[in-house]
């Protein structure tokens, strides 16, 4: 055991230098031109991009802008393009990049704010409003009475979809969305599916058709699976998009 301990300590002492290139641009400033700025820093054990960027910000360049809130992979703030792939920066460890070179870019398809910051919030709110991302029911709940019963498995299935953190990665990894900015993306489609399986919601398939039954919605998806393969919460996007497609197509055929 002593050996293993020593080994652990030894590992911590040999730090390599890594290079992080960050996209820099401030669309609100007349003087700003898009460019990449490269920073070299020494890597510490378990270093995440959150730790690395904070270090750059505090000690090398006070002007670089990026967003982190929870730094634990649960709030969805820190999505960015890391060596080409949209990912959560706080959940990405630097040691994963064997050549020690990391390129960071802001998430595409959202309004660019500055450097690595994009405006996901306004878009997600608009999306939530577009798909009416809340329970629709005529029933009035008396909150001092025992709650409505829900089958445990059904609750679990709803939860699986409710785990979405609105990080926007599914949109940034969807070429359909990259080409057509009006496409609502996997986040919107899986949100509809979430309510469609929730027993509290009384909406019918015809109602859902009104929300996403067009080429900006379910029929815009070309099954490129970028969403499914990059979603940091591993939502069952593939199956739930298919589920909505089946539902809405059969709705259309019936009516």
């Amino acid at each position: 055991m002593g050996d293993a301990l020593n080994q652990k300590e030894n590992q911590e002492q040999t730090f390599r230098t890594i290079e992080i290139s960050v996209f820099r641009y401030n669309p609100y400033s007349k003087h700003s031109k898009p460019r990449f700025e490269t920073y070299s820093l020494s890597e510490t054990p378990s270093m995440t991009l959150y730790i690395a960027l904070s270090k750059i910000w505090a000690t090398m360049d006070h002007h670089v802008s990026f967003d982190f809130v929870c730094r634990a992979g649960i709030c969805g703030s820190c999505a960015m393009v890391i060596n080409g792939k949209p990912r959560l920066a706080c959940k990405t460890r630097t040691e994963e990049f064997l050549d020690g070179k990391i390129t960071l870019m802001p998430l595409p398809t959202f309004k660019h704010i500055k450097d690595l910051q994009v405006d996901t919030g306004s878009w997600m709110n608009a999306m939530s409003q577009k798909v009416e991302s809340w329970i629709h029911t005529k029933e009035k709940t008396d909150i001092s009475k025992i709650e409505k019963r829900v089958e445990p498995d059904v609750a679990q299935a709803v939860f699986e979809l409710d785990r979405c953190i609105e990080c926007g990665i599914c949109l940034a990894s969807c070429s359909t969305r990259i080409m057509r900015e009006s496409f609502i993306g996997a986040v919107g489609l899986s949100r509809v599916a979430r309510f469609a399986i929730d027993p509290h919601d009384e909406r019918t398939d015809a109602d859902y058709y009104e929300l996403v039954g067009d080429d900006d919605g379910i029929f815009g998806c070309m099954s490129l699976m970028g969403c499914e393969d990059h979603c940091p919460k591993e939502l069952p996007l593939q199956t739930k998009i298919a589920y909505m497609r089946r539902k809405l197509v059969s709705q259309a055929i019936k009516s």
Partner: peptide, 13 residues
């Protein structure tokens, strides 16, 4: 909590 349930929070059952 019952209000939240009616708003769709998928409480573990």
């Amino acid at each position: 909590i019952r209000e939240l349930a009616s708003w769709g929070v998928p409480w573990t059952r």
